[in-house]
Design a protein around this nucleic acid. Structure first.
Lengths: 181, 181
DNA sequence: GTGGCATCTTGTCAATGGCAAGATAGGATC
DNA sequence: GATCCTATCTTGCCATTGACAAGATGCCAC
């Protein structure tokens, strides 16, 4: 993709975001270093600043990308149970994005692009809950979001006991059924 | 408690933990600085290292304290619904502890004292679920933990829409009832 | 081709975490 | 009461980091 190794990188912005995902997967968002990303991309230590301003700017872009990907995943689900499983699947497979998205102190939560992407995620979630047609959609949406988010978070934190097993989808489905079934 | 302003602080370990709670409440665990804690306690920048080794050591102590406090709060609850509300209440009132507890990359998760405290919390949670006497206690415990943890996490992240209201206890009770009722 | 602008580099500074070596105090031992 | 002795705290140092400023480079429009 960036075969030309000249003065200009070609697609540094994307390369930095990809490197950030890799670095966060390794050591979490806390240990993220802009200079390390620059080294991974083969550019100088100040290059990232041009594309993202500062560290919060880079994480803002990553979070926005994450909310967009989450919205996509939720929209592809057929019913609410599938949406819940898709939520957990997203958290596990896109761990780096997920961990940044729900840590607003790391980025600029009022960024326009991010607000739009977050809105798309929220709409996808609510439209999934609407298929339930119960008395209180707001409360049900909040309960569904809570149980899926809680399971995903506990799974990522490694807080769950071993007996839960190694397959997050299976375990998530069993837990979510306790609420939806 | 530390009226003597001599060479020795008197209770520096506790003072540093208290300062850490304050600092994390302000800006999150990521922005925590050992040197800032030392300044708040009125000691030199290297003093914290003696009590905690390094940053991870301090956060390990804080997380262990948090799991102990959580176990206490859960044990005081009468039924499972009350335990769920107590869980959310703990997350909101002891926000600094809670945020560190479920971010194991920040501390040493294999620390003996921490493992013991975490065990106490887990036991308190399971004993609460046992009162339900349903078919699958493991799955129910996981579902209960997930929904309480998810609601608490989303609340702390400021991710919930405004219509949820300003009182976490009331909103949590409504959501938890959807699973327990 | 030439000027303009986005992109990237080099250089610098303050803050931080962590280590090493030394200073101080308060208590145990005699 | 004197002396050691160990926990506690300090000063000094170094590598790393984020952020900023100023300059170099090359692509693109005209």
């Amino acid at each position: 993709m960036t075969s030309s190794r000249g003065y200009h990188h070609g697609d540094l912005r994307r390369a930095l975001l990809a490197a950030a995902v890799e670095a966060i997967d390794d050591a979490g968002p806390t240990a993220l270093s802009l200079r390390d990303l620059a080294r991974r991309a083969g550019v100088s230590h100040a290059a990232p600043a041009h594309h993202f301003g500062d560290k919060a700017g880079l994480l803002t872009a990553l979070a926005a990308e994450g909310f967009d990907l989450l919205a996509e995943a939720l929209e592809a689900a057929d019913d609410l149970l599938a949406a819940g499983v898709a939520y957990v699947d997203f958290a596990v497979r896109r761990r780096a994005h997920f961990e940044v998205m729900f840590r607003p102190e790391l980025y600029r939560a009022d960024d326009a692009e991010l607000v739009a992407a977050r809105g798309r995620s929220g709409a996808a979630l609510r439209s999934g809950v609407a298929t339930l047609s119960t008395a209180d959609t707001d409360r049900d949406a909040l309960a569904a979001w809570s149980i899926a988010h809680g399971f995903a978070t506990l799974w990522l934190a490694g807080a769950l006991p071993d007996r839960v097993g190694a397959d997050p989808h299976e375990a998530a489905r069993a837990v979510l059924r306790r609420l939806f079934g």
